[in-house]
Design a binder for these strands. Structure first.
Lengths: 107, 107
DNA sequence: CATGTTCTATAGAATCTCTATACGAGGTTA
DNA sequence: TAACCTCGTATAGAGATTCTATAGAACATG
């Protein structure tokens, strides 16, 4: 099933997604499924609280617009602190990833 | 600082550590720091609840023994279901790790 | 015996993510 | 216009994990 995220990876995925392109909420969710090849499927109940939290933190900013399907949609964009946060969390992920690989290989 | 884990990785690290060697609580913690090259430093307040939870789940079993320093210490050992769990969680980690790498590389 | 170290343990708070549900707006079809 | 579906946002409530802080017992050492 693998639909569940590791706690802490959601923010990084959202930051990365928005670094590539401004998107509205559900658009972010679709894009995450795409760039992780379906491994992560972010549900609305996880996504929106995360977006609000991250906007609160100043990493994102939002504006109302219109979606491809002519619906009212809130678009999100990375701020400058958001880009810095992306860099920080990417580094941290690399460190963790290397450490885990090293641990799992040990005999 | 990097002392904080991603939620969900602690169980895997404990399982892996005990697959190599039976150890008591603090011994596990030291060994995790070792095999992750200091990246993860598991504090008692995280470790003991995790050990109790995992024993409850049947992945570990424990017995009282004596530590290298002549202290009363509770040793933990992997059960058969524990080994299966280690395999499962290792696979899951690989999948997640690959998906994240793919996401972080996308442009 | 006073102090420090080792080892286990718990309470309480904080943080995330999930399930489930709701609601509004636009489009489609009968 | 009614019924219905889809898109998009939103929140409540639950569940799980980890952290900080604290405690206490046992042993060692000066």
């Amino acid at each position: 099933m693998a639909t569940n995220l590791l706690q802490g990876t959601l923010d990084l995925l959202i930051l990365k997604t928005l670094a590539l392109q401004e998107l509205h909420g559900l658009g972010i969710s679709h894009r995450i499924a795409q760039i992780t090849q379906g491994t992560f499927q972010v549900k609305p109940g996880s996504l929106f609280p995360a977006l609000h939290r991250m906007e609160e933190s100043g990493w994102l900013e939002s504006y109302w617009g219109e979606s491809e399907n002519n619906r009212r949609a809130k678009y999100y964009r990375l701020t400058v602190p958001g880009r810095a946060q992306l860099a920080t969390e990417t580094d941290e992920w690399q460190r963790i990833s290397i450490a885990m690989a090293s641990a799992l290989e040990s005999t």
